[in-house]
Structures are given as C-alpha cells and as structure tokens.
Design a protein around this nucleic acid. Structure first.
Lengths: 186, 186
DNA sequence: GTCTATATTAAGATAGAC
DNA sequence: GTCTATCTTAATATAGAC
C-alpha cells in the first residue's frame, strides 16, 4: 500500500465519521470539509461527483474493512474460535461500542440506499450463518442464530448511541461464540 | 378526548412518520408540510416555534404512546403475562417491525437530543427490569436481561429497516416473555 | 386557519487564481 | 492540489391577504 493511498484512506475515514454521527442529510459539505481539513473546493477536487461520490467512497471503505473483519468466519479453524476472532474484529471496528454504525446512519436518510445496506447485512449474515452451520446448526437454525446475533450487536450499538451505555453491546460480542456454536442458545 | 385533539394527534403522527423515515435533517419543512397536507405557513401557524417545536411535539407524542405500551409491565399480574402484553403493544406500535424507530432516526442527527433518547431507553429499561425482577431475577441479572431484550428488538428493527426482513424482530418479541422470566436465558 | 408571496440564510456545486 | 469568490438552488421563516 502506497503512503498516498493511506492518506486518502485516512481522509475517507474522517469523512465517514461525519456520516456516522450526522447521517446523510446532516453531513453538509461545510461539515465534511471541516472534518477533512480542506476547503469546499478542495473536497470537490478529490471527489468531483460531490457528496454522492463521497458517500460512495465512505461506503466502499466500510465494506472493505468489513470484509477483513468477517474473513475469519470462512477460515478452517474451529467455529468457536472463528466466532471469537470475528467478535474481536468487530469490537475494534466499533471501538468498544462507541463508534456509531454507518449502516444505521445512512439508512435514516432521504435516499437511504436500501440495496447497499441490505447487501452489507447479507454479507454479515452469510459469515455468521457459515460459522453456525459448521458448528452443527441446521440451515434454518443457523440463519436464525446469525440474524439474532447481528440484531443483538446492532441493538447494542443503538443503546450505546442513545444512552452511552455499552454493556448490552459488550455482552452481545462476548456471547457471540456461544450464540453461533451452542444449539441450546438458538 | 375531544375530536379536535384527535385531529391534532393525527397531524403529529403524520409528521412523526416523516422523522422516522428521514431523520431530523432529512425532514424539511417542505416534506413535513406535504405529509401534513398543509402549506408551509399553515404548519408554522400550528407550530410557531418551527421545526424545533414540531420535533418536540412528535417526541412527546411518542413518549405518550410508549407510556401506554409499557404500562402492563407495572400491573400486578403474572410477570410472563405482563411481558406478553407489552410485546403485543410493541408489535402494534412498530407495526409488525415495519415502522422505523423514532429514537434511532432522531439519534442520527445534528442536534441529536441524547438526553431525550436516553430517558426513553431508560423508561423502557425500567419497565423490562421490573418484570424480570418480579420473575425472580437478581437486580443485576434483571437489568442485563432487560437491556439485552431491548437490544434484540431495536436490532431487529435495524435489520428490518435495512433489509426488509422482519424475522429477527419477530423472534425478539416472541421470546420476550422467556427472556424476562426464564433465568437460564439470562 | 389556510393560503400566496417573499425575505433570509445555508446548502450544493463551479470557475479561475495561485 | 488548495485556495477565494461566486452561482444556483433549496431550506427556514415571516408578512399579510382572504
């Protein structure tokens, strides 16, 4: 990875933080340029397509990071261990539950790109379902356990965003290996 | 309740639907007036304080409805039955998981009123904790079970909003009585 | 109480100098 | 590649007729 690419990624990450906090409509060019440390025109120089292109870059970057975080789900190790590795990756990504979910932020929006958000949830569900299936869950039970686990984490993030309390989020991650490998919990 | 009040509540509900879908920044006066079936100026006549006053009315109305939904939690019936009643009320309120959560929509915002959202979550947590405590949970376990149940429901709503799939939300409501009265699930 | 018309500010976006 | 300056449109809000 070239240092230029790293700088560009840092910029996209900074822009993404704005969208996480303020959503699509709340992320004005003024606010974005401030977060980027660039004037409006400079931002348009980097993203000629304007806000739309910025959102696209932010989402692509998030999907990229998510792919890395979910990768352990498709390894050949023990399911329980894989679940723990993914949980660790998610906790890094969501900064111990204090980083707002980009998916949620962009769903609450005018042109909330449902197809995009849907595919992101789907990738997540596929990864979790894979672990549960490898742990011996029936296809139906694996899918259900996966979706419930995602709901627990996302719900934990909602509670964290609204009340500041991260306990539910932390439990959702801590119990992830159990949820995806212990049939009695399903 | 006077018919006038009912009409006013219908108006506030219609305005609230806009905030649920588009969030605070996405709910322009133009969009709000369209949803209300009134011209901009007429909307300002009803809400002289502008958008801020509209948000306040919408939130007050939601809190009012929520109080009714959560009321069974504080009755003197069997905990399991109370949980089932609240679950039924929540399902009505969230229209089988297809109605976006106002709390989430307003949290993703410029002036996301965290104090307001936090107090709403707190009322919810208090109700669920009460049921779990009456069912024999320890104070700590009751609080945890309550928060986890809320997270499951809110997470289910997130999944529903992003992917259209309501299964996780439905399971969160269906398992609510178990979650709040069965210690082994906690 | 609702409307048309309008003022004011901010947002998205572009042109051109350095 | 970044800046200042500017354009256009849309958003919040108000005035005053009916």
């Amino acid at each position: 990875m070239k240092p230029d690419a790293s700088k560009h990624e840092d910029l996209v990450d900074a822009l993404g933080d704005v969208f996480r906090r303020y959503g699509n409509e709340g992320s004005s060019i003024a606010r974005l340029s401030e977060a980027a440390g660039l004037k409006r025109s400079s931002l348009y120089h980097r993203f000629p397509g304007g806000k739309e292109e910025i959102v696209e870059a932010v989402v692509d970057r998030a999907a990229e990071r998510y792919e890395v975080v979910l990768a352990p789900a498709f390894s050949d190790g023990p399911p329980r261990e894989r679940a723990a590795q993914v949980a660790k990756g998610l906790d890094d990504y969501y900064r111990n539950g204090l980083r707002p979910c980009l998916l949620i932020a962009l769903t609450v929006s005018d042109d909330g790109d449902r197809s995009l958000a849907g595919s992101c949830i789907e990738a997540w569900a596929t990864a979790f379902t894979r672990i549960a299936a490898d742990a011996g869950f029936s296809p139906v039970a694996a899918e259900a356990a996966a979706m419930d686990a995602i709901a627990a984490i996302e719900g934990g993030l909602v509670i964290s965003s609204t009340s500041g309390k991260t306990a539910a989020y932390e439990r959702a991650l801590a119990t992830l290996p159990d949820r995806l490998t212990n049939p009695k919990d399903a």
